[in-house]
Design a protein around this nucleic acid. Structure first.
Lengths: 186, 186
DNA sequence: TACGTTGTGGACCGATTGGTACAATGAAGC
DNA sequence: GCTTCATTGTACCAATCGGTCCACAACGTA
């Protein structure tokens, strides 16, 4: 029979979408096979640790994307407010204006949190910390920066839950607009 | 052997906690049996429609609690700001200051949303609508009321996600305090 | 061209799933 | 006290789960 020749790196974003759509438990190997086109021999060849390793790799991939596009720009852009604006743009793009949910958030609310405690914690802690740092560089005092960072990250997560529950991506868009204004005011 | 004699109404809150902790798919019948102490004969006697009916009953039960303690007080209390404050107190109590997550939010992010679309949508739509109504009675113009209601409900959901991810219920408490201030200002 | 290595797909495995069937037990009524 | 009915627990079912194993095919090298 004709065979797929695949590359591990190419599989990871597809895997991410399966976990995003279905959660950790809902993402069965048959759902993964259907979406990736790869049989178990290939999947276990790329990910000898099985499904848990697939999820770990997906979390690391997402963490890497956010590190490159959100956390490090927040940490390194001199102009704090510019950094924050870039964060909003990257986040809006990543979540496709509310059309896709946050895998880490999905994992946080389920049994997967117990399996991937450090990755889930680390992702959110890094985001809050990086954003607080940018706000401090924008002139906020540290306590206020921490409070606003928490508000923004929680606000984004909540908007994703509500958007999906109400089937209305406008909720996400309006929330980002409001959070932008919140941070612009001083 | 000794048998449990159970009442359907008593089982529902216990079922709710299983779905809250594990999500819809993660809540296997064996997990439900372990937590409720009931075998399948009893579970299927109470819930002939099986697991989907158990989840429906749980969602209806939660909806009923929120209707009684949150949505209707928001709709019926003449003093809009008093109603809002009561909502915050009830919500804080229900989520035990961030120690327990929102079943409906958990379902919203997973495959269960597709099974329980109307219940998930209805719960959040009712909450936003009731809160917006109270804010209008408190003197906000309707657009502002709607925006603030969305902000609060999304904020609560986001705080639950972040609290659980960071294993820090302080996030929830601080978020409620901030949302209270947001609504108190005019 | 032949042989060895690597990657693939899917059959098969034991375990668990949601659900069904039914025997046993307890309660209620006569 | 006996009979009937309701509730219970669990054996059993087919299906699916995550994972293992292996035959086969393709590719690379001598």
């Amino acid at each position: 029979m004709a065979r797929t020749l695949a590359d591990r790196q190419d599989v990871i974003p597809v895997l991410a979408e399966v976990f995003r759509d279905h959660g950790f438990e809902g993402a069965s190997l048959s759902a993964i096979t259907a979406r990736t086109g790869l049989g178990k021999g290939s999947l276990y060849n790329f990910f000898p640790g099985g499904k848990a390793e697939m999820a770990e790799v997906v979390l690391a991939h997402i963490d890497g994307w956010f590190r490159a596009h959100v956390f490090e720009p927040l940490e390194r852009t001199g102009d704090g407010l510019k950094a924050v604006e870039a964060m909003f743009q990257a986040t809006d793009a990543y979540f496709r204006s509310g059309q896709r949910v946050c895998v880490v958030g999905v994992f946080a609310l389920g049994d997967a949190r117990d399996l991937f405690t450090e990755q889930v914690h680390g992702y959110f802690a890094a985001w809050v910390r990086a954003l607080a740092g940018a706000l401090v560089r924008a002139g906020r005092d540290p306590d206020q920066a921490q409070t606003q960072a928490e508000e923004v990250v929680a606000g984004i997560q909540g908007a994703l839950v509500l958007s999906r529950a109400l089937n209305d991506t406008g909720v996400f868009t309006r929330t980002l607009a409001r959070l932008r204004r919140t941070l612009a005011d001083d």
